[in-house]
Every structure is written in structure tokens, then in C-alpha cells.
């Protein structure tokens, strides 16, 4: 038992700079590899739908706009996204069509404004590109 055991520490902080940050005005940098918002690079996407299948929040939606022209539309619902980055891991192309940036201030007042969509032609640049939705296995790591 010691009365006022905390006193030296408290008085020291009285003359120190506060440890907190004036948030909306000053921001801390996020570390490298931070999982922010997912994005699509439409030039690389081969429409294998691996990301759509593995997305735990069902935030990715790929629909065919015109099957004959191989035009597809991908919608990322950022309101549902849980920022796990599994879509990036599941993406089989090199370099990856799905990428995740470090943007984290994506809140909005309406969930409908948080959608992002791309309409694009399926890329065929991959030599060993699997046909849509390989049923066998997908790389996990």
C-alpha cells in the first residue's frame, strides 16, 4: 500500500505533450500492408469469380452484361465489405486484378453511395487462365 502511488507519473504527463492525436485534423499514417478498400483492375480480370465465391460478406457481385461480347460488370459493395482481403488472396491472375488500398475513411451517409462498379471486357492475357469458376481448388495463401 502506498498512498498516491500514481502521483509521479501523473505529474510527469502534466508537462508532456498529450499522447492523443487531434484526429480529424491530424492523422496517423497507416502501416504498409494495411487492408483498406478493395479495388478492381479491370484490365486483368479474367472473370473466374474466385473472389465472388470466397468473399465472406458477399460484397462482390459479378454479372454478365453481354455474354456474347464477354462484357461483365463487377460491383463491390463497400457497405458490406469487411476488409478481410480474401478477394486479393483468391485472385489467381499475376499481377492480381483485385487489390486493396490503404483508404479507411470510407463512411458515407447512404449505403447506396458506397457501391463501386466496373463494366469491362474479360481479359484473356493469362496463358494458364482457368475458365470461369474452377471447381477444383483455389490457392488459399
Amino acid at each position: 500500500m502506498r498512498i498516491a502511488a500514481f502521483l509521479p507519473e501523473l505529474l510527469r504527463s502534466l508537462f508532456k505533450k498529450p499522447n492523443t492525436v487531434d484526429y480529424p485534423f491530424k492523422k496517423l499514417a497507416v502501416p504498409e500492408g494495411f487492408r483498406g478498400t478493395p479495388h478492381l483492375d479491370p484490365d486483368m480480370c479474367i472473370v473466374c469469380r474466385a473472389c465472388e465465391r470466397d468473399c465472406p460478406a458477399e460484397a462482390i457481385e459479378i454479372t454478365a452484361v453481354n455474354e456474347a461480347e464477354k462484357r461483365f460488370r463487377m460491383v463491390i459493395h463497400n457497405d458490406r465489405c469487411i476488409h478481410c482481403g480474401q478477394c486479393v488472396d483468391s485472385c489467381p491472375t499475376v499481377p492480381k486484378a483485385m487489390r486493396i488500398d490503404s483508404l479507411f475513411e470510407i463512411a458515407d451517409d447512404s449505403r447506396h453511395k458506397m457501391k463501386e462498379d466496373w463494366v469491362y471486357v474479360r481479359a484473356v492475357i493469362k496463358p494458364k487462365a482457368p475458365a470461369p469458376a474452377p471447381a477444383g481448388e483455389s490457392p488459399n495463401a
Binding site: 501523473l10 508532456k16 499522447n19
Partner: peptide
């Protein structure tokens, strides 16, 4: 303010 600064916070700003 004093309470906050003792706790290494900012207090009203």
C-alpha cells in the same frame, strides 16, 4: 483540462 493533461489526454480543445 488539468484532469485530461494528468491523464496524458488533450481535454477540451
Amino acid at each position: 483540462k488539468v484532469f485530461a493533461r494528468l491523464q496524458n489526454r488533450m481535454g477540451p480543445t
